[in-house]
Nucleic acid binder design. Sequence first.
DNA 1: CCGATTTGTTTATTGGTTGAATTATTTGAG
DNA 2: CTCAAATAATTCAACCAATAAACAAATCGG
Lengths: 353, 353
Amino acid sequence: MAGATGLTRATVSALVDDLVTGALLTEVEPAPRSGAGRPAFGLTLAPDGPAGLGLEINVDYRAACVVDLAGTVRHRLVEPGDQRLTDPGTAVAALGRLAARARTLAEADGLTVAGAALAVPGLVTAHGVVRIAPNLGWQDVAVGDLLGDPEITVDNEANLAALSELGTAGLPRDFVYISGEIGIGAGIVLDGALYRGTRGWSGEIGHIPINPDGPACRCGARGCLEQYAGQEAVLRAAGVSTVEALASAAAGGESTALTALGAAGGALGVAVAAVVNLLDVRTIVLGGSYASLLPWLHDPIAAEADRRVLTAAWSPVRLHAATLGADAAMRGAAGSVVRALLDDPAAWLARRP
Amino acid sequence: MAGATGLTRATVSALVDDLVTGALLTEVEPAPRSGAGRPAFGLTLAPDGPAGLGLEINVDYRAACVVDLAGTVRHRLVEPGDQRLTDPGTAVAALGRLAARARTLAEADGLTVAGAALAVPGLVTAHGVVRIAPNLGWQDVAVGDLLGDPEITVDNEANLAALSELGTAGLPRDFVYISGEIGIGAGIVLDGALYRGTRGWSGEIGHIPINPDGPACRCGARGCLEQYAGQEAVLRAAGVSTVEALASAAAGGESTALTALGAAGGALGVAVAAVVNLLDVRTIVLGGSYASLLPWLHDPIAAEADRRVLTAAWSPVRLHAATLGADAAMRGAAGSVVRALLDDPAAWLARRP
DNA sequence: CCGATTTGTTTATTGGTTGAATTATTTGAG
DNA sequence: CTCAAATAATTCAACCAATAAACAAATCGG
């Protein structure tokens, strides 16, 4: 460890001591090793130290999960139910009860919830106020205050979902996560950190112009990506009503479905080209409903992107499917709490003397 | 100073002492002040300490400048001449002689050249090799080796031009600089630092798709921004041959010129919308030939951008003209050296004991 | 001229890190 | 089995940068 960090063995010893007494690390059996010399102690991130509480409120469900320092999901609670019908206060109160249940479960495990983060499908200000969440019908909702937890982090679901993919094996430190749901959002990860933008409103990829004279969008403009590759547009073009139906139709080789997916992929490819030309990320992660549709979206996206990305000849765009599915945003939320702990363990140690 | 930094007066004293003895700061007459108390010493960035050498090689000129710690341009050398006709070796050798002259002038002033940076109109790898510079006809040119200065920083001209605007009064820490020349490039400044992308190829805004079925571009795709708002396209549409002629035609109210500028502005607005939706920067700086054409470009860009940016209703996109004109890239290059000095003065002090 | 006010320096102290020496625990050779 | 070599971990004096607090310097206003 001293070798890897450049610090002295003495220093590492002192720091590790602090972390062990602070219950962030625990000593375990040393890893079996060959060769002479005294074997090193084994160390793991404590499975019974502080943990992160991840929350999500979305169009048709509420969810909570508890993730420990090692990144393991220790508890997972999902409550289906249309959130659009209830007013924000009622929905948030229900979420608060779910969060309390998760906390209780965590404490029964000996975990301490060190913080919470909430994923919301909408624009969130830097102060954690939901500026607008069109699909929930929310506007200027101060979720933290309503939850009675002003410390909570509130963030866009695509941003948090992107964070959940960060650290996945094979993913670089720079990528853009594109989440295809009713709306299309993106989480931009640059140099291992989420890029939120000046006001936290980055990643509105759904409204990148694909064709300036295209169909009208509910945002007031014309030809936004959402009108070509949004869930509603694709399902309508394919003549089916659910993503599952679309996937099975495509698997069955139905030409309407394949044409619809090809068109959506082409539009996505144009947007991906814009993103890659601008940001020079070489990896795009497709999440939300795009993850399960990637078998049919991959080639049209790649064809269009490679044609339009200036540097594609030397290094083509890499398309990955997201790995976490529907839990991505919630797990990213919990993960963001854990990441904050790992990034500044001293702050946590100072909080509990 | 202690108040601003949160350090003790004693600490500041010690640090300032080091910087003064290291010739990075000089004591000057204290600024006149009212009120009781012992007057403070005046301090300025040393006008005779280390300086940055900024170089630029472009289609029709070579240039060098020396910028001191305070950011003042102390020397400026420009040599016109078509670089396209000469092979890279000859062009770089001529640039090397220009750089040597600038160095001599700087030393005559008591300045020490602490480092150099070179702006090139093309894609540059992280190791300072020009991967491709289409308008120079260069491909895989290791400029640093040719110059005999492997320490030199080589970067894209739009990137360095963006840096030159950073620190300008009224500009925030996040903006995108769009440089309109033969090609269209962008420098992305996020949180006060240039974002270069995974391989240093960010900002290729000229090849953002505006209309997927638009005119063919020399990059092989169709409908790139460059085909709508590149210098050649705009001049052709306006029926003039130089940017100056276009500006005076527009100033004279000639409708062909105004129409051409309106169309270019509209296309730029679409690209700006893509950038802002994606990155949530609220400021766009227009440089290169766009700076002088901004009076006629501003409204079409703003109209299109505000229509297409999701958050424009709350906070419209702000368009600024670049302030430095043709010298921007060269001055940004020199400035990047100076910035590196200011960011880590201890490294410089360590280099000269 | 004197006290109030602000700036700058001096000095002892502190906290975190280093380096060298020391102790601990294993492997492998004789 | 024993001992040397190898690797890990700890101890402790020394160091460095920053701090706090006291002190000296320079100015203003009455």
